[in-house]
């Protein structure tokens, strides 16, 4: 009896927490006129995918989506590749300044973007790459790299030193030991880090707001917000459809790869 009551209470809390997102999905399939019903209906009287159709064919949403995909993938590949090598160096090599560097990484991980954004903006203008996806990839490394480096460092610290030693004794060079032994062991960590980096880039807003102001280079975050601002009267169902679409990659990651997300948290998300 107590169990049942507890379960009921727990699930009520869960559903209340999830309600905004559930409401988002519901709104996105309601016909426009049903939104302005007073009192509002909970279940749609009629389910329509009209908003999704309009979103995809009558708005620049697909361009934004493409930009976001390119942007997030490029940032992730660049950052994770560089950070994997860097983390390996921080964990397995000894050289002066290594500890300091590790501390610096943690420090930069906490830096507020607003401090970096203005100089970065000037830098992009000066480099002549302002208003392009490239400028965003460069800017995104400023938060994604410290993050990835810290996360991967935690993961790699968990790989026993003896493994690399064994490979060296067995005749591998240090680079071979890295590719043959360390990399396969770090793979789950690399996947976690990639997912987190991807999500961070996918969700980023401020840099995109400041550095890009043409629809052709806008990612989803600023793109969808510009749809909100520019429309004459706000079409909530369209925006909710956009929100759902925007969250699709996250839902996929969540459904399929959640164990990597929680693992990433254990390694670095909380620690730093």
């Amino acid at each position: 009896m107590k169990r049942v009551a507890f379960n009921l209470m727990a699930w009520t809390i869960v559903l209340v927490t999830a309600f905004p997102l559930i409401w988002m999905v519901i709104t996105s399939v309601k016909p426009q006129f049903e939104l302005f019903r007073i009192p509002p209906t909970f279940w749609p009287e009629e389910i329509t995918f009209e908003h999704y159709r309009r979103l995809l064919w009558e708005t620049p949403f697909l361009t934004f989506m493409r930009n976001s995909l390119i942007l997030s993938f490029s940032t992730t590949v660049l950052v994770v590749a560089v950070a994997t090598l860097g983390a390996h160096s921080l964990v397995r090599f000894r050289y002066p300044g290594r500890e300091r560097l590790a501390q610096l990484v943690l420090f930069t991980y906490l830096l507020p973007s607003v401090v970096l954004i203005l100089p970065l903006y000037l830098m992009m203008v000066w480099l002549g790459v302002a208003n392009s996806l490239l400028s965003l990839v460069i800017a995104y490394t400023s938060f994604a790299l410290p993050y990835a480096l810290w996360l991967l460092r935690s993961f790699m610290q968990g790989i026993p030193d003896d493994l690399e030693s064994a490979a060296l004794v067995d005749g591998a060079t240090r680079m071979e030991a890295f590719f043959d032994v360390i990399l396969p062991q770090a793979l789950p960590g690399i996947i976690s880090t990639s997912l987190f980096t991807f999500i961070l880039s996918w969700n980023e807003y401020l840099y995109a707001l400041v550095l890009v102001n043409t629809d052709s280079a806008r990612p989803l975050t600023t793109g969808v917000m510009s749809m909100l601002v520019s429309s004459f009267n706000i079409e909530w169902s369209l925006l909710m459809a956009a929100s759902v679409m925007m969250s699709v990659p996250l839902i996929i990651i969540f459904a399929v790869l959640q164990k990597y997300l929680t693992r990433g948290f254990g390694a670095g998300g909380v620690k730093g």
Binding site: V14, T17, L21, N203, L220, L239, M240, S247
Partner: peptide, 22 residues
């Protein structure tokens, strides 16, 4: 239940804001 609770953290702030403003 865990997934549902964690999800808000992972959605974009833009999504969160649009939903809440609605």
């Amino acid at each position: 239940a865990r997934s549902l609770i964690l999800f808000p953290y992972f959605v974009s702030t833009v999504v969160a804001v649009l939903v809440w403003r609605w």
